[in-house]
């Protein structure tokens, strides 16, 4: 067996969790737009080029859904069940790849990074409104899909976020129907299909303000439907306000 004594004294090289390359010195100069130290630390493990590639939505143009561009959906929509939502990044090609790496390929090393990016959206949400949240929950997966994938990405992100910011996470929803993949459908059928997909889990933990976490916002139909179900389940008390917190906005 060969022993490389030099390696004992070399500095520990940490590979970038996304591209796997060693982090270069250049990455230090790129600012991380997050205040909380824990997610900041996570983001610091990324290499310069990966960090550069993140299309942060620092200034949302749409005050409602948090999109960086003008948003027709929010103008057109008559009834809205969620209050507002904020998204961390725009859903461009590299972000699509990152999410696929995590969600479909199952590289759970990315979970921390995505959660740290979601922390950015959380901080933007806190800037937009009075932060007096009590509870955080996530959009559920259908049981079959959950068995297939092994994890619910929204739940994982929400739990990480809850740990960092001292929120209390609890599952409040369940998915009743196993729908086709959202990404394969048109806008109209998405809205129609969503109806009756979710049900509230009976729980006493309901609180007046709830943050709902999901990975992508495309038309907002999932978010809206979930918010509707949550509000309905909580009719007895004062009205529930649901805020959306999403990792990407397409």
């Amino acid at each position: 067996m060969r022993v490389n004594i030099n390696s004992w004294f070399a500095s520990v090289k940490s590979a970038c969790p996304i591209c796997g390359r060693g982090s270069s010195q250049g990455s230090q100069s790129i600012p991380i737009p997050i205040k909380h130290p824990a997610p900041r630390q996570v983001m610091a493990t990324l290499c310069g080029s990966c960090r550069q590639a993140i299309p942060w939505i620092a200034y949302p143009t749409c005050r409602i859904c948090g999109r960086a561009e003008r948003c027709e959906d929010c103008i057109r929509r008559q009834v809205r069940h969620f209050s507002i939502s904020r998204c961390a990044v725009g859903y461009d090609k590299p972000m699509k790849d990152w999410l696929a790496l995590y969600k479909y390929r199952g590289n759970e090393q990315l979970e921390l990074v995505l959660a740290a990016m979601l922390a950015f959206a959380y901080e933007r949400l806190c800037e937009a409104i009075q932060p007096d949240f009590h509870a955080i929950t996530s959009v559920p997966l259908a049981p079959e899909r959950l068995l297939d994938r092994g994890f619910n990405q929204a739940e994982r992100l929400a739990i990480r976020l809850a740990n960092w910011y001292g929120l209390s996470y609890s599952p409040m929803l369940e998915r009743l129907r196993h729908t086709e993949k959202q990404s394969l459908k048109t806008r109209r059928s998405r809205v129609v299909d969503m109806r009756g997909n979710f049900a509230a889990v009976s729980t006493a933990l309901f609180s007046p303000t709830i943050i709902l976490v999901d990975d992508i916002y495309t038309t907002g139909s999932t978010l809206d439907e979930c918010a509707r179900v949550l509000q309905q389940a909580n009719q007895i008390e004062a009205k529930t306000t649901v805020y959306g917190l999403l990792w990407a906005r397409s």
């Binding site: 199952g106 759970e108 090393q109 979970e111 959950l146 297939d148 092994g150 994890f151």
Partner: peptide
């Protein structure tokens, strides 16, 4: 890497 797995309800390891 050991992560909680919904398919077996355990922290089970996967190969990176």
């Amino acid at each position: 890497r050991r992560t909680p797995c919904a398919a077996c309800g355990q922290a089970c390891a996967y190969c990176e």
